[in-house]
Design a protein around this nucleic acid. Structure first.
Length: 432
RNA sequence: UCCACGAUAGCUCAAUGGUAGAGCAUGCGGCUGUUAACCGCAGGGUUGUAGGUUCGAGUCCUACUCGUGGAGCCA
């Protein structure tokens, strides 16, 4: 039953007779010759059906194939300069597997609303399939990177009893007799427990934010990878973050050439993603903003437009560190040299893609952490287990979170996060 | 939550307040090398909903519904 050969391997089978299975991507005809474009998930292949080379019945079958109908085709593999991809199939037999009537996504332009409604079919298009393959390769690069460096995968719970950072709006639901529970907005606090147990860990899973964000940079459900390391200070954290991003981007450049070409990505912008990345303090970022004519005031958080101005000064990701403590989360450690700023870092991607990493050195002093929890009006009883991490052998430790969809969107050069995840979840949309 | 824009054929879009159209898709016909093929013919509409102005509304006004993406929040 299963295919013995796939399109991506055909260049090793020139001159051989093969049998392929897949779907009709597109069809052209010129009287007595039909051009069937077969897709099988690994590539696209032009199949030629000449009227003189096949039976009347087979020619009729080829004529009746409609867009996205599934079929099986047998023929001889030929090197052919006129075919896209350089290889084509000279068909001798075509068998319909299952029909496809009135396939809604035609080979013309469509609006985003329509395409998202048909997301389950849109994924069959060349472009969307290429994005999914890049996403897969990014995920593999992430896992390889941490695996090669002695990290342990550490899965945090998705159901949590409280807000991690106390700021974002969370999805809330009833949890049996225990009252309200929430979908996680970050696995970080749990990753800290992991780091103090295992040294270096990373979490990787879905994350949920109930913010009513309506922008190209937000989803309500997205994937985040969060490494957390014992005995890492902020500089160590930044070293790891830049090595990590370089690794991901250079791996995709090397392994996903075909996909990046389908996406028409300007890869020269990715090739320059090499260490070292520029590191600027928040104070220096404010100077850049003022020089570029904004009336930005010290103490505010960087907005989307501010990030674009800053990142446009550099040809690779830029790390902005030491933010005003007031705009950052309660668990971030203050800079011993300047208590107004937190030992935090955001990594801004080039080309206006914005914040793809947010990280910090964590507060490791029990009393300071308790006072921060109070300042933020957070319920201390929910954080007792977290405070235990400071009661029993507290150590300096750091970590960061990388947004998978933002990273994939940046590498692919796509406009909107919704194309970088198979089934995006946004405000006003939870289907298909 | 706030701001802006939008809704016309299955899809993408036209249409000075005066007969609702094109391309793609679909069906039929033509073409032995097409590259989102091309050429000919055909079918396809309660112009988002409700009201109003007008001799006359897809077009102007009001409300609502839905959508889009920007702010805020952040990955």
């Amino acid at each position: 039953m299963r295919p013995k050969i796939y399109i991506k391997d055909l260049s090793d089978h020139i001159g051989e007779q093969v049998n392929l299975k897949g779907w009709l991507y597109n069809k052209r005809s010129s009287g007595k010759v039909k051009f069937l474009i077969l897709r099988d998930g690994t590539g696209y292949l032009q199949c030629i059906v000449f009227k003189g080379n096949v039976s009347e019945e087979v020619f009729e079958t080829a004529d009746r194939l409609s867009q996205e109908s599934s079929f099986e085709i047998t023929g001889t593999v030929k090197a052919e300069a006129r075919a896209v991809g350089g290889v084509e199939l000279d068909a001798t037999d075509v068998k319909l597997i299952s029909d496809s009537v009135d396939y809604p996504i035609t080979p013309k332009e469509h609006g985003i609303e329509f395409l998202i409604d048909k997301r389950h079919l849109w994924l069959r298009s060349k472009r969307q399939a290429a994005i999914m393959k890049v996403r897969h390769r990014v995920v593999k690069a992430i896992r390889d990177f941490f695996d090669e460096r002695g990290f342990t995968l550490f899965d945090p719970p998705v159901i949590t009893p409280n807000a991690c950072e106390g700021t974002s709006t969370l999805f809330e639901f009833d949890y049996f007799d225990l009252g309200k529970a929430y979908l996680t907005q970050s696995g970080q606090l749990y990753a800290e427990a992991g780091a103090l147990a295992l040294g270096k860990v990373y979490t990787f899973g879905p994350t949920f934010r109930a913010e009513k964000s309506k922008t190209r940079r937000h989803l309500t459900e997205f994937w985040m990878v969060e490494p957390e390391m014992a005995f890492y200070d902020l500089d160590d954290d930044m070293d790891l973050a830049e090595e990590f991003l370089e690794y991901i981007v250079q791996t995709v450049l090397r392994e996903c050439k075909d996909e990046l070409e389908i996406l028409e990505r300007d890869t020269s912008k990715l090739k320059s993603v090499k260490r070292p990345f520029p590191r600027i303090s928040y104070d220096e970022a404010v100077e850049i903003l003022k020089k570029n004519g904004t009336d930005f005031e010290w103490g505010n958080d960087l907005g989307g437009g501010d990030e674009t101005i800053i990142s446009s000064q550099f040809d690779r990701p830029v790390m902005v560190h030491r933010y005003p403590a007031e705009v950052k989360a309660f668990y971030m450690k203050r800079d011993p040299l300047n208590s107004r700023v937190a030992l935090a870092v955001d990594v801004l991607a080039p080309e206006g893609y914005g914040e793809i990493i947010g990280g910090s050195q964590r507060e490791d002093d029990l009393d300071l952490l308790i006072s921060r929890i109070k300042e933020h009006n957070l319920p201390q009883e929910f954080f007792e287990w977290y405070l235990d991490l400071r009661r029993f052998g507290s150590v300096p430790h750091s970590g960061f979170g990388l947004g998978l969809e933002r990273t994939v969107s940046w590498i692919c050069g796509i406009e909107h996060l919704r194309e970088s995840i198979p089934f995006p979840r946004m405000i006003y949309r939870n289907t298909p």
